[in-house]
């Protein structure tokens, strides 16, 4: 039976009882860290009507934010921290424009909750250069003319660095397969493959 047919069902979900059940009777979720009666591992809980404090470590810097629990890493970066390099293309994990590294792994920041990314090192396009010299992959994208409008480029570059480090830049075919999660509407693909090939040896030797 589907409960949608009866929204007033007495058995339907109640946030109050959920919080009480999960947090041993504590009503205010931000203070709900006290041990419950039957367990020692109490997950943190949070009231959806209140902002949540979260610290995101981005490019080596801690950022303390108060955000809606629904905030993705992408929106936290762009709207709260001011790092607009990571781009919002589809916002559904289909285009790759939002690709960042979390603990060195390339992931889609649009499908990662900021709350899930706490305690993890996030690297964005802004964190690649030391301020004097471009990262080899950034330089390679310029050298190979690997973009036209540039909107997908930060995601391409983040993905390309991971692609190289994963060991998937050994052939054109390999690069195309393992870069397929980054869509380029301008179709700069041949130049992107060339850029990945150019930067790979320097990244792997560095």
């Amino acid at each position: 039976m589907d409960d949608k047919t009866n929204p007033q069902s007495p058995s339907s979900f109640n946030r109050r009882s959920f919080l009480a059940g999960a947090a041993g009777g504590a009503m205010f979720p931000l203070a709900a860290r006290a041990a419950g009666p039957t367990t020692t591992t109490i997950p943190s809980t949070q009231d959806p009507t209140l902002p949540v404090p979260v610290t995101l470590r981005v490019n080596g810097h801690d950022n303390s934010l108060n955000i809606d629990a629904r905030t993705t890493v992408l929106d936290a970066l762009r709207e709260h921290i001011g790092l607009t390099g990571s781009k919002k293309g589809c916002d559904h994990g289909q285009c790759g424009a939002c690709t960042v590294l979390i603990e060195g792994r390339r992931v889609l920041s649009c499908l990662t909750l900021a709350l899930s990314a706490q305690d993890h090192e996030i690297t964005t396009i802004e964190g690649l250069s030391n301020g004097v010299r471009l990262h080899p992959m950034q330089q390679a994208f310029i050298d190979q003319d690997a973009f036209q409008c540039g909107y997908c480029t930060p995601g391409q570059i983040m993905s390309a660095i991971a692609c190289v480090k994963e060991g998937h830049a050994n052939s054109d075919e390999d690069i195309r397969e393992y870069m397929s999660g980054n869509i380029c509407r301008c179709a700069a693909y041949p130049n992107i493959v060339a850029a990945v090939k150019q930067a790979a040896p320097e990244i792997l030797s560095g």
Binding site: R15, T39, T41, I42, P43, D47, D68
Partner: peptide, 13 residues
């Protein structure tokens, strides 16, 4: 909106 919590281990989850 949703209430978010993080489970530390399988029992907590």
């Amino acid at each position: 909106s949703f209430a978010y919590q993080r489970a530390a281990d399988p029992a907590a989850a």
